[in-house]
Design a protein around this nucleic acid. Structure first.
Length: 503
RNA sequence: GGCGGCAUAGCUCAGUGGUUAGAGCAAGGGAAUCAUAAUCCCUGGGUCCGAGGUUCAAAUCCUCGUGCCGCCA
């Protein structure tokens, strides 16, 4: 069984922020989850380095573009590493193999008649490298991108166009035949109605400006982001020159994207693939935005509160684990997620510290103090209902398989609640005879299951628990057989109470 | 403007024809002392947006209205 998951490739013209991390963590959780189930997982992330904005960003810091992107790519890798992101490959679109693939793709589309030279006339933002329709441009004639707002130019320019319009019917047929192609379904509906409203051909080149990938048969032009960036998903697998990985993983491909780039992934990318005669990705998963103070989180809005670079480079693994948990625990995946420091503190204290952390603490303390750190299975389960635990686990599996992160987390909390109630109901601290061993064994057994569910969200914490329970890494696998006895090691507080979780 | 969605407890939401509408959190009361004062139990609380309709029966289906949200390169 195999699984291929990708993040979008990120623009390195600014440092990664909490929103970027959200996407990447979401992929990491899924990736780790499938690894636990013994899937052969390929997890791809990387940087999209060929935009002309890079030149500008590099100039600002007095660097050559290539030096600049080299440094930024290292920063991205470093931050992901610190956030416990375990990717398989980090792709950079300035790397040779990617350039070759992008050019190959462009050439092939051209040869097959899907790319033609045409004239574009209309409003253009040089900075954003974006053509704007008249409906979006107001009287000010400023760039509609609120983060840009530079003056637009009215241009007439020859460019290469991709015959997107030729794929309207094929796409609609594909959507109809693959009702799970885009998640969530309401986003899928939007995609379908967009395509139904009619597709226009797409400008896929820009005037070459000493940066970017040249159109192979016309040195005056560079390949624009669609064909350049989107092909990273297959160039990373070696397409079309080394097909081993491609043959292995492409048919199980999942693209995680923000809701703002669904169309590129659910319309343009499939059309390109159809033109190349390549199978379409299995699923496009679109998440919502993190919202701070009712606005999309960004460097200026909320980015200072949730300062990713600072958090990541602090190497405070508990804080980082809690952040991973918090971001995916909130809201309903796909919808916008409101985040705030207050809420993060609340989740940390209530769910991680008081509920989960304290549960481990009270169980292990009893075993340490009253059972000399040792418990063993003496009889069949008589305190804890195995069916209840199995149901949590299978619900967790079902929800996470469907990208319902927060619902999966609720199963974790549900199990923790249940175990807290068991301790309470049987007044475990009063039991003096051999029944104590049995109930404690059942509790530790349950904690091992709980830890399996914690792992994809908080791998550092899960490993910490493994040490305390004296268990091997394999105990995180779904097919692990839980042992009949446990020798507990030293007990450690998982989530210390802290006044300022982020400070 | 076109298309689509949503409106249920103070908050976030579950509930698509069948007892007295549910959960978590918040609020109020209590118990316990193994544990990071962490936990557990109980209680209060709803014109299911409004109006009309279909039905033996509507939060649930239909129509209209109101409000909010998403998509329309």
């Amino acid at each position: 069984m195999r699984f291929y998951i990708t993040t979008p490739i990120y623009y390195p013209n600014s440092e990664p922020h909490i929103g970027t991390a959200y996407t990447t963590i979401a992929c990491d959780v899924i990736s780790r989850f499938y690894k636990q189930k013994n899937y052969d997982v390929f997890f791809l992330t990387g940087t999209d380095e060929n935009s002309n904005k890079i030149i500008e960003s590099a100039n600002k810091v007095n660097k050559k573009p290539i030096e600049y992107v080299n440094e930024m790519a290292e920063l991205f890798k470093n931050i992901w590493k610190n956030l416990d992101i375990e990717y398989t490959k980090f792709i950079r679109t300035t790397e040779d193999y990617h350039i070759k693939t992008a050019q190959f793709v462009f050439q092939k589309l051209y040869e097959q008649g899907y790319i033609y030279k045409g004239l574009y006339e209309g409003w253009y933002c040089i900075h954003c490298e974006t053509f704007w329709t008249t409906s979006k441009v107001d009287d000010s004639k400023l760039c509609p991108n609120i983060e840009c707002r530079r003056p637009l130019n009215y241009i007439k320019e020859e460019n290469y166009f991709f015959k997107l319009s030729a794929f309207e019917d094929k796409l609609l047929k594909y959507y109809e035949d693959n009702p799970d192609f885009v998640y969530p379904d309401y986003r899928f509906n939007e995609v379908v109605s967009f395509v139904k409203s009619g597709l226009q051909d797409l400008s896929v080149s820009r005037k070459y400006n000493n940066w970017g990938i040249r159109v192979p048969f016309d040195q005056d032009y560079s390949i624009y982001v669609w064909i350049d960036a989107l092909t990273n998903y297959i160039s990373a697998l070696g397409y079309p020159f080394e097909l081993d990985l491609f043959d292995k993983y492409w048919e199980v491909s999942h693209h995680m994207v923000g809701k703002d780039i669904i169309r590129f992934h659910a319309v343009i990318w499939p059309a390109i693939l159809m033109a190349l005669n390549i199978k379409l990705p299995k699923k496009i998963i679109a998440h919502g935005w993190l919202m701070y103070d009712n606005q999309k989180i960004s460097k200026s809005k909320g980015g200072d509160i949730f300062n990713l670079k600072e958090i990541a480079l602090s190497n405070d693994k508990i804080k980082i684990s809690a952040l991973r948990y918090y971001l995916l625990r909130e809201g309903s995946f796909g919808q916008d997620i409101p985040v705030s420091l207050e809420r993060f503190k609340y989740i940390y204290t209530s769910e991680l510290s008081n509920n989960i952390g304290n549960l481990f603490s009270r169980v292990l303390a009893i075993i340490e103090k009253k059972l000399n750190k040792y418990v063993f299975k003496e009889s069949d389960f008589s305190y804890i209902q195995n069916s209840f635990i199995n149901e949590r686990l299978s619900n967790f599996d079902k929800e996470l398989s469907n990208f319902n992160y927060s619902k999966a987390v609720l199963e974790i909390l549900n199990l923790a609640d249940y175990l807290n109630k068991i301790i309470e109901n049987y007044k475990v601290w009063e039991i003096k005879d051999k029944n104590l061993n049995q109930i404690m064994y059942e509790l530790v057994y349950s904690l091992v299951v709980l830890n399996k569910m914690l792992y994809p969200f908080m791998p550092f914490i899960a490993n910490n628990i493994l040490e305390q329970l004296n268990l091997p890494l394999e105990s995180l696998k779904w097919d692990y057989t839980i042992p009949d006895s446990f020798n507990i090691k030293e007990r450690k507080i998982l989530f210390p109470k802290i006044e300022n979780v982020l400070a």
